[in-house]
Design a protein around this nucleic acid. Structure first.
Lengths: 244, 244
DNA sequence: CCAAAAGTGTTATTCATACACCCATGG
DNA sequence: CCATGGGTGTATGAATAACACTTTTGG
């Protein structure tokens, strides 16, 4: 099946709820950077958009979000949180979608529902960077890669604002729901944990006090030491306590 | 125009976005109780539902929410916050809407879009209780009154869960955004402020420390004393400082 | 003068921050 | 032994909680 057929099947069928989309800010932590997974659009210009999609007429919103997340990361059972609704009239996706369909080679017809005005539900997801194998959406994506939150590429529509709102919400929820641990692997050193906090909050934290604060919360289980071969004391590995 | 005509105009026209609704948890503070404005449905059984509505095809989500809020409270420029999306498949509004349309006397037709499955966007609003004049939606409501959060009546679909989630979010945001002040009038005594906090958080607070905490925030302006005629020291009135 | 509630000074406790030192590790 | 980074004891300061006292009001 070629792209045009695939596209026409996609927009032709009456399978999705109209005028509502989901946009996902997929956060990963790597190389002491908070990163976002961003597909690059198939356009002449360089433009990126959040991984998103539509909700099936007989599909729960949660399921749709999980489906979208799995389609780009390959992961199931991802931590996610809804953080906002983006429904202003001036968010113009029509021109963008038209440009893309033209590029693919689809004859644009005015009545295609994808050209309509959309309300977007914003979710952020926290994933373990190393476990993700970025996947392409055959129709839309030219590439799909991680970008540091500090060096975001050119983003479509209001996706930069969506990312910003998602990041703000993550910062508020970081301690409140212990969300950040979803960015790390099963085990981690205290330094890794601290770097993750520092990166999300975008401010330095004191090593000694951070360690105490985390240990005092009584949520960490100390495991064996991690011998890295470096000429210094080996740090302990920790994991989140299972039962609370 | 009778009810049936009004209904058919409502569902007949292609003015709203399909399968998406807005539900508003309108909080008011009165008589030391946190209350929610709830319309009672036109049914044989006693059932209440959150004030809600649909989003116009050419209307922003924010505008739709404000329109819904004004239609029930008579107030414009209401403080509101989006707190969740309710999109599970088992939220069955179809039977409910059918029962209502039967009750009104409308010939139910399967294709009416209002019978479809809906995703609801949850907003909470904070209003000044005394300024609200509850209004009826001519088609749907039998009555519209305030109910204490502690003694909620029977609620349709998942509206009890929506209220609960809204309340939880309000609690988290209470200090963070100084949201609670929107429940009080222009001026208020420290006791009123404290009662409002206690009611929302559902826990007692110490009078002395609460006063200090509020004053230390440097957001309150002290006005004249309020002589109530009671045999005790007259409390000061306060208002939120205008410029920050 | 009294009771009730408001306002505030003072103390105690807890929590966050800062400084210091010791320990482990590989070269 | 050294350099480097990890772990923790302790001191300091800030925020919070608790106690106590004084003031104001109408009867």
């Amino acid at each position: 099946m070629d792209l045009i057929q695939e596209f026409e099947q996609w927009v032709g069928e009456d399978t999705y709820i109209k005028q509502v989309s989901i946009d996902c800010v997929i956060f990963g932590f790597h190389d002491n950077n908070l990163k976002v997974l961003l597909p690059k659009l198939k356009l002449d210009e360089d433009l990126w958009a959040l991984p998103g999609g539509y909700i099936g007429k007989d599909e729960s919103v949660l399921n749709a979000t999980r489906r979208i997340l799995e389609s780009r990361t390959g992961l199931v059972d991802i931590y996610l949180e809804q953080f906002g609704v983006f429904g202003e009239l001036n968010r113009n996706s029509k021109d963008l979608v038209k440009t893309i369909t033209n590029k693919i080679g689809v004859t644009t017809e005015e009545h295609f529902w994808v050209f309509d005005r959309f309300i977007s539900l914003g979710f952020y997801a926290l994933v373990e960077y190393s476990k993700v194998t970025p996947r392409l959406n055959n129709i839309l994506d030219e590439s799909c890669d991680w970008y540091s939150i500090k060096e975001l590429p050119a983003l479509a529509i209001d996706h930069d604002q969506i990312i910003q709102k998602g990041l703000e919400t993550l910062r508020i929820m970081l301690d409140h729901k212990l969300a950040g641990f979803n960015l790390l692997g099963e085990t981690f050193t205290m330094k890794e944990l601290q770097k993750m906090y520092e990166t999300i909050l975008d401010k330095p934290l004191r090593r000694d006090n951070f360690q105490r604060k985390m240990l005092d919360m009584d949520i960490l289980e100390r495991l064996e030491k991690q011998y890295t071969g470096a000429a210094n004391k080996a740090p302990y590995l920790y994991k989140l306590k299972t039962i609370k």
